[in-house]
Nucleic acid binder design. Structure first.
Lengths: 406, 406
DNA sequence: CGAGATAGTTTTGGGACACAACCAATGGAG
DNA sequence: CTCCATTGGTTGTGTCCCAAAACTATCTCG
């Protein structure tokens, strides 16, 4: 059946492409399963023959991408050797935003091997100072890498616009940074580990879409709202983050809620961020700007009228804007992440009701508003992007000699 | 360099997959070029060897998907035999909306072989009557298929929500249709040609993204606005229409412009359509609802104050809403299609200025508002979807025996 | 303890592409 | 007009990769 989506451009295929593709199929199958699987299990899951799977798995084991367990999987018939993603393959996730600095080491199983973080106030900070802090956390985390391990990359999540090459931060309004290239500042700790930059919300969304390398999350089509001081966002379709032609996609905080309303530093007015961003909400509630959204929720709980009104207006604004997004993109799930996730138990039902009332196809589709519990989702996503890359193109890692120690 | 987009799931590959993939590569190369190409040209463009290309081309020629010309391509060295997409492969594009009924026959070169159309008023019409009209146009167009030709499919564009299977129209507010299955009504004319349904704006956007099968249009990332009585839309990223999880994506007409404003039959209020849809504009201008947008533009030209105001408000609304879309998705191009395209010369500069003023990354990205000149773009897209499918999976057509006459 | 079942390996075969040598046909230099 | 350089296209050989089937290994169940 012809569909609009079936038109992706094919790529030239050699025979080696075939092997690379099937290596990826096998590795993904191993990674996708939460339980260890056998060679035969991979074969029946993928449709490849047992002999082919065996050869590909041997190659992955030799390259250090897959671990063969010693215990056997019981059951009738010959017991199977369990296969799991290798622990020795790791990636680093880094995050700097106005309130967090964090470093995480995550392995190919998607497990957090080590973590180091702090909560300084970095509004209007000097990039060098922040990167110094980050370097400290990084240095704490790196030694946790397994012996003979290999760190395939590092991903740094930043609350701003990153250029397409993934090397330069163009602008981060809430940090008041412009044109920062963090690679240089971190080279000392990173040695030869490649560092890529990404927008915090985009990376958080990636982590929610694929909570472990090669594994699908609970939703494949969603819009992710990352609320901190401002509001970022990301659109995920078919488990892939839509980052746009230049990588600038996701500025949901600057979609219009009340055009002609509150002026916004972005140059526009009535932006969502002016109603549902932390700064706007605390100001409306009559609380100091350093108040966290969790505290704001607490105050509302206690009956503080200003806080209640601020939260109600924020939920209204989110509902209106997100309904527009759902109408435009047919995404049945809305994920609240970052600090605004802390308000989710309070506002999710309201947002959901508002959205449902304004969505054309609400009668034919499910709708759900949920929370991303990871409070450094950007860092998690930064590591997972590199690990997902390994699952997608295992041949690259194999060729690079998976045996290098770190 | 790891990117967010690189995570697409690989598919099991046999050796036959390899051949199918390379067949598609070769056919796409032939189709993508506006000029005839030689086997050697395909080889150098794709990276395949001349021998491999030769074998694949022979197969495509034998299957009737590619024509070998008799004239020779001049130049130094041995003259080449020119290759072109076969004329005998065709698809039918159909369209029904409130003001148009049309049928088009398009061949694998993307050329319109035959067309038949009428402009009845179908607001609140009986589906059977409209489908009867459509059947008439279809019957006029089918005999134009080349001798021994093969019609690979038919695509019907409708101004409403189509279910995921592409067989049922769930709701078309402007026609006042619900739960219509046009396949049955057209089976008489269609014989065994498979019919798929699609949203008019989605199909129009597809035609703009890929004006001929396998050929890329002037823009790969854009938002398409199809303005008729109401307003539909579509989002295209990387030359692919984003149709959403259930195929409902693109309801840009019901994104919020002034939440709390004009109530909309969709159940919401302040929707874009209430300010930039034809019905809303004519009412505001104080003209009869049957006034076309071209006429409205004419009246404004002549100094009619109501028309001017209506157009200004529509441009304002489009600017605000589209700026939000650009912020969300980082699409540098906005395409005005359908009837609202007739107003493009008048409103495009205003819309562009409004958008530019509200887009965060406007300083780092180009922005352009342009017009889709095709006034039955939905029909064109309906046919192109099927033809694009042939380019993407030529093996399917070859296996089905391309030799069947129609 | 043996039969059945399941896991994994080895062997053989076929399909597809790369490579290289070869044939074909034209334009241009002399 | 002849010859040669140049490019287009074909043919034959080798290599890579997967499928199919036969074979071995090891456990569970009766």
């Amino acid at each position: 059946m012809p569909t609009l989506a079936a038109a992706a451009a094919p790529v030239l295929a050699h025979q080696s492409t075939l092997r690379e593709s099937n290596l990826a199929v096998v590795l993904r199958c191993v990674c996708a399963s939460p339980e260890p699987v056998s060679r035969a299990g991979v074969a029946s899951a993928t449709g490849l023959t047992r002999s082919t799977v065996s050869r590909l798995v041997d190659e992955l084991v030799a390259g250090g991408l897959v671990d063969e367990g010693t215990a056997r999987l019981a059951g009738p018939g010959r017991p199977a050797t369990p296969l799991r993603p290798a622990r020795r393959i790791c990636a680093v996730g880094l995050q700097v935003n106005a309130a967090h600095v964090a470093a995480r080491l995550i392995d190919l199983r998607g497990e957090v091997v080590a973590e180091s973080r702090s909560e300084p106030d970095l509004v209007g900070s000097d990039p060098a100072r922040a990167l110094g802090l980050l370097g400290g956390h990084l240095a704490e985390v790196l030694p946790a890498a397994p012996e003979h391990g290999r760190i395939v990359g590092a991903g740094l999540a930043l609350p701003g616009v990153v250029d397409a090459s993934g090397e330069r931060l163009l602008r981060a309004p809430n940090l008041d940074w412009r044109d920062v290239e963090p690679v240089a500042g971190l080279r000392g700790q990173l040695h030869d580990i490649p560092l890529t930059l990404g927008n915090e919300a985009n990376l958080g969304a990636h982590a929610f879409a694929q909570p472990a390398p090669g594994r699908r999350g609970r939703s494949s089509h969603f819009v992710y709202v990352s609320g901190e001081i401002g509001i970022g966002g990301a659109v995920v379709t078919d488990s892939l983050v839509q980052s746009g032609l230049h990588g600038f996609a996701g500025e949901i905080g600057h979609m219009p809620f009340r055009p002609g309303g509150d002026p916004c530093p972005c140059g526009s007015d009535g932006c969502l961020e002016r109603y549902a961003g932390r700064l706007a909400m605390t100001r409306r509630a009559g609380l100091p700007p350093s108040t966290t959204l969790a505290e704001l929720g607490q105050r509302a709980e206690e009956g503080h009228a200003g806080s209640r009104e601020a939260i109600e207006l924020a939920a209204e604004a989110l509902g209106v804007v997100l309904a527009g997004v759902v109408n435009l993109l047919d995404v049945p799930t809305i994920v609240l992440g970052g600090e605004i996730g802390d308000l989710a138990p309070r506002i999710a039902p309201v947002v959901e009701a508002r959205v449902r009332a304004r969505v054309m196809a609400a009668g034919w589709m499910p709708l759900e508003v949920c929370q991303d519990p990871d409070d450094v989702a950007g860092a998690t996503g930064g590591a997972l992007v590199h690990l997902t890359q390994v699952v997608t193109s295992p041949a690259v890692v194999l060729a690079a000699g998976g045996g290098e120690a770190c």
